[in-house]
């Protein structure tokens, strides 16, 4: 039983990943403030926020931006507790371990600016990703002159991950239904290897079919992609508000008394 856990845990992990992605897609489809913005404007303004967090020399500026981020969470119809769980999870991962020597030597207050900086940047990044559909984010990449074929390939990877996770799940259940719950680790290894080979063969076959389907609809080596993004007045208004905020906060932050250096 114990020896079988590795495969079972991997399958459960893959399914959890799938469900997480689906849930994130549902959040992105809600009718909230950030969800209603054009993804290009949203990405640009969030980049401004992150730059501001990175450049801020005043802790109050970072607190202000973090509070703004939480306000955006609320008006985008996202559960605050869910958001906090998701963002605070990253903090020990990225920063707390790095800061342990400083905490031990100078106390927690010495690393507070560093932690707040990481927390705020992570929060804005997570907020952007959960309020924007993944395919829209991919399409926005074209703003950065990333070749269309690259964006398209990423989009196709995203689309087929689901299919393969489903196949893995079904294969696992089919194996389980035939061999029961206990498998000797040697057999378990060969079943896993066989499944990997089978999945590889399926993906090669699917790859051939997808390419034929692309050719059949006129693909000739350079993909043209649909761009139906439209700027609306609210997008321009939001951009204006963020720019004013950026300039104001930058000026105030630059002359703040409590300069921080982390």
């Amino acid at each position: 039983m114990k020896n079988n856990n590795f495969i079972q845990r991997s399958i459960i992990g893959a399914l959890a990943f799938l469900k997480d992605l689906i849930f994130a897609e549902e959040l992105a489809a809600r009718r909230g403030f950030l969800q209603s913005l054009d993804p290009r404007i949203k990405l640009a303004t969030f980049l401004l926020f992150i730059i501001q967090v990175l450049l801020a020399r005043n802790l109050q500026v970072i607190f202000f931006l973090y509070a703004l981020c939480l306000l955006l969470v609320l008006i985008s119809r996202i559960n605050l507790l869910f958001f906090l769980k998701r963002t605070w999870f990253f903090i020990p991962l990225f920063s707390l371990f790095i800061a342990i020597p400083a905490i031990l030597s100078f106390g927690l207050s010495s690393v507070l600016p560093f932690l707040m900086r990481v927390l705020t940047c992570v929060s804005f990044t997570v907020l952007l990703s959960i309020t924007t559909k993944h395919f829209a984010l991919l399409r926005v990449l074209r703003i950065f002159k990333i070749p269309q074929i690259f964006v398209m390939t990423l989009g196709m990877c995203y689309r087929y991950i689901y299919l393969f996770v489903e196949i893995i799940e079904q294969t696992y259940l089919a194996v389980k239904s035939r061999v029961g719950t206990f498998v000797h680790y040697k057999n378990g290894r060969s079943i896993a290897a066989w499944n990997i080979a089978s999945l590889w063969q399926r993906s090669v076959k699917l790859n051939d079919e997808v390419y034929k389907a692309m050719l059949s609809r006129g693909y000739r080596g350079e993909a043209m992609v649909w761009n139906d993004f439209k700027f609306r007045p609210r997008d321009w208004l939001w951009l204006l508000v963020v720019l004013i905020m950026f300039v104001t906060v930058s000026l105030r932050g630059a002359v703040g008394d409590e300069a921080i250096f982390y």
Partner: peptide
């Protein structure tokens, strides 16, 4: 699943005519 390879239904439907100009 082989024919519908784009991230959304809309992109998939318009894929053909876009390639064909």
């Amino acid at each position: 699943d082989a024919q519908l390879f784009c991230p959304t239904v809309e992109e998939d439907i318009v894929f053909g005519p876009l390639q064909l100009g």
